[in-house]
Write a protein that binds this DNA or RNA. Sequence first.
DNA 1: GTGAAAGCGCTAACAG
DNA 2: CTGTTAGCGCTTTCAC
Lengths: 345, 345
Amino acid sequence: MTEAVSRPTLEAVAARAGVSRATVSRVVNGGDGVREPLVERVRRAVEELGYVPNQAARSLVTKRHDAVAVVIAEPEARVFTDPFFALQLRGISKELTAHDNQLVLMLTEGRADHARVARYLAGGHVDGALVFSLHLDDPLPALIRSAGVPTVFGGRPDWSDGTPGPLYVDSDNRGGAREAVRHLVALGRTRIAHITGALDQTSAVDRLDGYRDVVGGGAAELVAESDFTSAGGERAMRELLARHPDVDAVFAANDLSALGALRVLREQGRRVPEDVAVIGFDDVLPVAEEARPPLTTVRQDIEEMGRLMVRLLLGGTGRARADGPAAESPAGVILPTTLIRRASA
Amino acid sequence: MTEAVSRPTLEAVAARAGVSRATVSRVVNGGDGVREPLVERVRRAVEELGYVPNQAARSLVTKRHDAVAVVIAEPEARVFTDPFFALQLRGISKELTAHDNQLVLMLTEGRADHARVARYLAGGHVDGALVFSLHLDDPLPALIRSAGVPTVFGGRPDWSDGTPGPLYVDSDNRGGAREAVRHLVALGRTRIAHITGALDQTSAVDRLDGYRDVVGGGAAELVAESDFTSAGGERAMRELLARHPDVDAVFAANDLSALGALRVLREQGRRVPEDVAVIGFDDVLPVAEEARPPLTTVRQDIEEMGRLMVRLLLGGTGRARADGPAAESPAGVILPTTLIRRASA
DNA sequence: GTGAAAGCGCTAACAG
DNA sequence: CTGTTAGCGCTTTCAC
């Protein structure tokens, strides 16, 4: 291995370009207020020396880090297996890159990790945090809040106390669910079932509420509790079929569980969509497209949610702080969903 | 939001404890060579003030960052959807935490990102890099190597040039494949097919080689090229069945494609394992366990691979460098695999 | 517009 | 053992 020789410093660049350190610094940071010929000279020196600013030294004086922590609580391993997270992380990564920020990933499982995360965030090592709090009773959000770091949550957190709402990005789970069920109704279905997601997550609760908004009043409820997995979807579908053999439509809380439902329906000889119409949620490719039959589903722009979280966070740091109270800024941003019609409903 | 008030410094702690900054520094960094009563006083002051060391200031002088970059090239989105990565990342995260290191995640897609990653690594912002280079023709490994940062690869990289081998962690793909196929042979199967992984990855190639080690000489080859996905597994199985209706065993390159094969077999009325025995690779739960029938598969300890990568990297930084040439240290660490017998073979 | 100088908060010799 | 003293590499007033 090559010895990690000391990298060139500002000083070296300055010497080479025949200017002062201050001037080099100005050029490196945008070059405002430096005359063209000098800018050019400095640029060349930087190039020739392969100079890269020392982030530590810079942070020391600016108190900025150009780094954002992404905190993912994963009591279950599921978190990462779900394409949903992968996509969101992708969006986050891209947007962070566009802003020249680094992504510090913190996976947590259990109380010991919570303390560690809180300490890290409170330590002021990053400019902000993006937090995925999956479960309703998760103590993490409160802890993080107390750390006093700008934070944006992925998905509406369960903020039970009376404090002003935290910033978050979510999609319109309830509205999307309503649209899906309404579509089923429009198709003439009268025995519409719902396979829920894990009900300790707000998204699952919201989708269930959306289902109830449409169906609850009229038809009886046909709800089977599940957990966002395809195996769970299978179980739920079997249960539904056993309890209500006459079900003619199913709205599943996500594509994975819809997939499980599809498998059970096929297995039991029900035709989709003729006998039973099926709608999913997410529009995660290739899951939805490669399902047989291709899945009608509620699309959310997952990657965009990730990007938006970053914009909200980075726009907020410095900007919102300086301009005044956050009273005017919305607590949460809800992205719209769209129903994607394929063959299953 | 609370204003991010300036955190207490060493100076403040020193004042409060009535000692010098140096003493506080010693205590904070382990407390060697400081007398007990003083240690105690300092500890209390740290506690009371809620002092957290400023990492930037520390890095500036130590030239260490206690941070490691994890670089994942993901030309396809598949990367994250595969539980394999999730697990490995988990192992990495845990081990990094145990070493008090941060995980800087860098997702790349395309040449522009390569340059960015190379620049970042060369910039000396992290103590090392863990790199997942998925594809044989990936230019990333070479780029990273030129950055001169301690690096460990996940999976054997395709190091075609003659330079001394890079550090990497992989499991015994070839040996594991051999064991699987031998098991099939021991079961009396004579028409053993193989569904490959994406052949632009060394793991897929190695598993194919292992299959050939056992089958290649005797029976004719029954190979269908695929891509590690369940949809790909379905396609491959269909193809195999069409070309060789008499196949009586299938070794799939991973659990996901085995799952696809299982689906097609069931669909076409073949009993597993009576008519066709099936073996997967990975032992990714719950995939393997919840398959019907439960999948016999080659287990690799994925999380441990992640942990090992970290140990190799962190052990290497400073240790190997100081002790002398890396001649003695192995280029790669190959973890053993074990065949897990369930119902499918 | 450009340079000189003063730190940011910490560690690491070096004295004592 | 403990304190004093230099910087680490950079940004940022403040003069010129």
